[in-house]
Design a protein around this nucleic acid. Structure first.
Lengths: 184, 184
DNA sequence: CATGCTCCATACGCTAGCGTATGGAGACAT
DNA sequence: ATGTCTCCATACGCTAGCGTATGGAGCATG
């Protein structure tokens, strides 16, 4: 459905939409405003997209790929010991687009289909963390609980909606890795 | 400035505004819509408030009192051993209006004065948790880190926006209290 | 009963934004 | 050079929502 040889096409619109959503939530992605920002008019938009909703859905798709699937794939492909893998995941998380996460979760509160997507992604992420932790020798059920603790802490940071100094991040808490991997 | 003997006054407007913000963020609090919902017209609103901004600021004020100050006060007044106090705080957090939290934090991303308020409240909350943990014998700096982990986890869990099975809650993770209070 | 005060309704102008309809410029083929 | 296809501009109607201006009902008070 998507052709990668477009001159100014869906990609640019989606990218700009992500910027807008990151800054001010879904209500901030307005087609006429983005058009101005891209130096074109609505005419262009309604050529590439059916309507505003199509843009939002495309944004959601892009987010799944960008902020979850590709991360898991790249980290697992790289491999290493559990501690190293976890550190790599953390590195990705620290570069994550936090504002976008918040925007989507707020959107999900009003749209059930979006909610389902978010839930699925959350489960993927937690399952991935659980997998890493269990590889360090922690039993599955305990690994799941610790994965949730970690992930909730990530999301919590994210829900702050504001920049957090890297040294303040949960992922940098001294001894956090030992605490997570500790067994028994 | 506020008279508590008003028949239908600021209180009702603020309360309805909170409901709207909880559901769909600040962009969802619209005076004409709330007016309809309250069974009145804009005429009423612009009698009680200067403009829409005044309503939003009143909402922010109410939130601070409602969701932080009164919680800390009530918990500390009740007292008890650190473990009990922590459990009481957790009980409050589990009843917290999460949607409102998210809404305000997204608002803060665009408004600097709001941002400052949020930061102050977050610091109050974390400082309170830190205080509780340190009362259990954990040194201040470690207590601060663990307070952040806990606080972020609460916020994150709750940011999911839909009910979580009680047994899945971070606050119910077996050994979480021991992990937090453990020293050395 | 006239006056004034409180609280709300009605009516108006104005803007931002959505979606549609139509035109038009450029590339490219025939 | 004529048609056609792609991509975008312009113009239009429509709605939601803000803020203001003005009127008016009810009630108290002199």
């Amino acid at each position: 459905m998507e052709n990668s040889t477009e001159p100014l096409g869906r990609r640019e619109w989606i990218s700009a939409a992500i910027d807008a959503a990151t800054l001010g939530g879904m209500d901030n992605v307005r087609v006429e405003r983005i058009a101005r920002q891209l130096g074109v008019t609505k005419g262009s938009f309604y050529w590439h997209f059916k309507d505003r909703n199509a843009l939002l859905n495309a944004l959601l798709e892009t987010w799944q790929e960008m902020q979850t699937i590709s991360v898991i794939d790249s980290v697992e492909e790289r491999g290493g010991k559990p501690g190293e893998i976890l550190r790599n995941v953390v590195a990705h998380i620290e570069k994550m687009n936090v504002g976008l996460e918040v925007a989507l979760r707020q959107w999900a509160a009003k749209d059930d289909s979006v909610y389902k997507v978010i839930v699925r992604i959350d489960e993927m992420r937690v399952a991935h963390l659980q997998s890493i932790i269990s590889r360090a020798g922690v039993p599955q059920s305990h690994a799941l609980q610790r994965a949730k603790l970690l992930y909730y802490a990530f999301i919590g940071e994210v829900a702050f909606g504001r920049p957090i100094a890297p040294e303040d991040r949960v992922t940098r808490i001294p001894g956090i890795h030992e605490m997570i991997f500790r067994w028994p």
